[in-house]
Design a protein around this nucleic acid. Structure first.
Lengths: 224, 224
DNA sequence: CATTTATATGATATTTTGATAACAATACAG
DNA sequence: CTGTATTGTTATCAAAATATCATATAAATG
């Protein structure tokens, strides 16, 4: 099902403009005209994202985010009139994820919505499945040709990461950042060794995919 | 080629800390210790991003951004001591793109650097497509007439670069700078050889485009 | 058409990169 | 605290990519 986006603004034509943009991208759009209504709708519909105007009567955007954060981590993009610099910053300080300045540029709004959703995307299943392969990062197990294989955590995380984004090449440094973490300062050969150990486990499992070396660049999980 | 990041701070240990983080991510790091030096380095090296401290003697961060904006649109992330709220806001008003509060968290700095560079990046897809040709720099693969061809990195990068800007002529020196990298000092005949190898792979693929020699000048990817 | 200049090409040398094995360090469980 | 599993490091070798050079070919020039 499509993701729900809650738009909160006291000016209805702004809501409708955003609805237009968002529905074109296949989001399901909910609308609220003030902070209290917004909070109620969050409880009721649990949207994936909130677009929240700052300047509203009664309860403004800051106040709304502050209350929201007492019971929900739903990502918020603040909508601010041009020049409302102070508002923008305060909004971010108070727990918003991004901001867009009015007047809107359709492309920019959509880009930011997508970026925030991508960033906050919760990996639903924690599992990737391909021919003869199943990697589950929640249960920490690996099945190759139906057989469960004992796999050390780092190997599993590495495989999961690569398989989650098939065909995309990762440099060793990127993998160190994304699997080992930014603060890890080790040697990039480490990745080679883990790849090698994974390959031993995966050998001959399928001809539909492969842990492939991209010479001079890095590794990828290639689907054929 | 790696992107250049200019770090501007009067405290050298802060510069060095940032250098550490950034170099690990393969950015080329330039350092300036005051605003004037920074502006000069921007003119000389044209960095992709500037990390700019606000509190500096002589010319502070605000003043520096203001001057910078008279001749350059290079994105700027302001560095501010915790609690310098007013400073932060003024910085953004004056044309900065984001801010990071001291003390730094490696993860946060890198995330913001990448976010700003992504936001200001022009090429999103990493792919160019023409008749019977597809070059993808994210997957690092080359498809000619539907067939995937194994291609060494330099060849792929060269083709991508040329094909990304069709019909534009590049001299060998330009290609060496832009594909091999600024610090590369090799023989320009090297380009010829790579062009030759690419032509072997691309031979007879299409009559809609061509890797063309421009006599006495260089090469171009010509669309007909 | 001869001459000069630029480019293409093939062969070879050099450099870079990757796989692997052996070992060291570390984390972890009992 | 000890033994075991995991993770990380290093050295070596092999493979691939790249650079260089010599020579052939082609284009421009007068």
């Amino acid at each position: 099902m499509n993701q729900k986006v809650l738009v909160v603004d006291d000016e209805n034509n702004i809501c409708e403009l955003l609805r237009l943009y968002l529905e074109k991208e296949n989001y399901e759009v909910l609308i609220a005209n003030d902070g209290d209504q917004a909070l109620q709708m969050v409880r009721e519909y649990d949207p994936a994202l909130i677009l929240l105007d700052i300047m509203m009567p009664h309860k403004d955007g800051w106040e709304t985010v502050r209350e929201l954060r007492t019971f929900s981590a739903t990502p918020v993009i603040m909508l601010s009139a041009r020049g409302e610099t102070f508002d923008r910053i305060m909004g971010l300080d108070l727990g918003a994820d991004d901001y867009v300045a009015k007047p809107f540029d359709a492309k920019e709004v959509i880009a930011r919505v997508k970026a925030v959703l991508r960033r906050t995307a919760t990996d639903d299943t924690g599992e990737v499945n391909y021919d003869n392969l199943s990697v589950n990062i929640v249960r920490y197990d690996l099945k190759v040709m139906g057989t469960k294989l004992d796999t050390p955590p780092k190997e599993l995380e590495l495989l999961y990461h690569l398989a989650k984004n098939p065909n995309r090449v990762y440099t060793r440094d990127q993998l160190l950042d994304e699997v080992w973490g930014f603060e890890y300062f080790g040697d990039s050969r480490t990745v080679d060794v883990h790849i090698k150990r994974l390959r031993e486990k995966l050998e001959g499992a399928s001809d539909k995919w492969e842990l492939k070396t991209v010479w001079g660049v890095g590794y990828k999980f290639e689907l054929k």
